[in-house]
């Protein structure tokens, strides 16, 4: 739409140029990922030799699942994937509930202090996790938890230590607030006059019309949680709780084998890519919606 409509031959020339450009860019964005997946099926030596030609991107030569077999032997990969899925999905779901509720209170309701609270929440957006990791470690190692054996102190070696600190998220709250503010207030007003309670309004009126922003927040929470790396190294000592990114380190001590590494990288990346492709439109549309109101 943004490009001037040109009739006739020139139109076709422009079209060809545009497609050429798009294809070239597509190669740049796609080939590294393609290289990773293709290499995961090749023996180490061939990966190195193939880098000197286009064969690097083609599934040719000696192809096998050998790298995958070895990667799964070297690290309990399936366990790590399951752990990451568990931690990620619970965080996403709890995050949706907690953050949307807070945003509802901050944007639809009116109460003294909400302005200050919102400003503080938005200000925390600039704190990178790396800078508070150590104080946070000191803190969680002393927090109580009610487990099977009664109250225990210290949150290390568990799923909850990987989940709870990441549920509330300033950016998520911000996105929800922006979206809720854009909703027509008549919806709320009408329900209120009908005698609905605030919580009912949140559940029956607001949530059903907020699909896009819920999807956005879900996706924006999913990606960083799946990629957790520094925090699990610090708080998880037992293999049974480790997530996928820590598992990566199993491949970088002795016997560095690129084939195995590529196989492991593909194993932890391809499922996310497939999920993305399957839900591609929802994915892109929902992220897009975060920008409109920005």
């Amino acid at each position: 739409m943004t490009v001037k409509r040109v009739k006739g031959r020139w139109h076709n020339v422009f079209l060809v140029i545009r497609y050429l450009l798009m294809t070239l860019l597509g190669v740049v964005f796609f080939f590294p990922i393609l290289f990773m997946v293709v290499s995961s099926f090749k023996p180490d030596l061939q990966i190195l030799q193939d880098t000197s030609s286009l064969r690097a991107f083609l599934p040719v030569g000696e192809l096998s699942f050998q790298n995958y077999v070895e990667a799964f032997e070297r690290a309990p990969t399936e366990r790590f994937i399951l752990n990451s899925l568990l931690v990620t999905s619970i965080t996403v779901i709890l995050g949706l509930v907690v953050n949307s509720m807070a945003a509802f209170a901050l944007s639809i309701l009116r109460w003294r202090g909400q302005g200050v609270v919102l400003s503080i929440i938005i200000a925390t957006f600039i704190v990178p996790f790396e800078t508070i990791a150590i104080p946070l470690l000191l803190l969680v190692s002393r927090l109580p938890w009610i487990g099977a054996d009664g109250i225990v102190f210290g949150w290390l070696n568990s799923y909850h230590v990987q989940i709870i600190p990441f549920i509330a998220n300033a950016f998520s709250i911000f996105l929800f607030v922006q979206f809720f503010k854009s909703l027509p207030f008549e919806l709320v007003e009408a329900a209120r006059i009908d005698g609905a309670g605030w919580f009912q309004i949140y559940r029956r009126i607001i949530i059903p019309v907020s699909g896009p922003v819920f999807a956005t927040v879900a996706i924006l929470t999913f990606l960083p949680m799946w990629n957790q790396y520094l925090w699990p190294i610090m708080v998880v000592q037992q293999e049974e709780y480790r997530p996928v990114m820590v598992g990566l380190q199993y491949f970088f001590q002795l016997n560095v084998a690129w084939g195995e590494i590529m196989a492991y990288l593909s194993t932890i990346t391809v499922p996310v890519l497939v999920l993305f492709l399957a839900l591609q439109r929802a994915f892109i549309e929902s992220i897009a919606s975060s920008g409109i109101k920005g």
């Binding site: 907690v98 953050n99 509720m101 807070a102 509802f104 209170a105 901050l106 309701l109 009116r110 109460w111 909400q114 609270v117 503080i120 929440i121 925390t124 704190v127 800078t131 508070i132 104080p135 946070l136 803190l139 709870i164 600190p165 990441f166 549920i167 509330a168 300033a170 709250i173 605030w198 919580f199 949140y202």
Partner: peptide, 22 residues
């Protein structure tokens, strides 16, 4: 009251896991 109640889980979590460590 509802406002504070609904915002409190997020406020509590952010306070504990972000603002205090900060």
């Amino acid at each position: 009251i509802t406002g504070w109640l609904m915002a409190s889980p997020a406020i509590f979590l952010l306070l504990t896991f972000l603002i205090i460590p900060f």
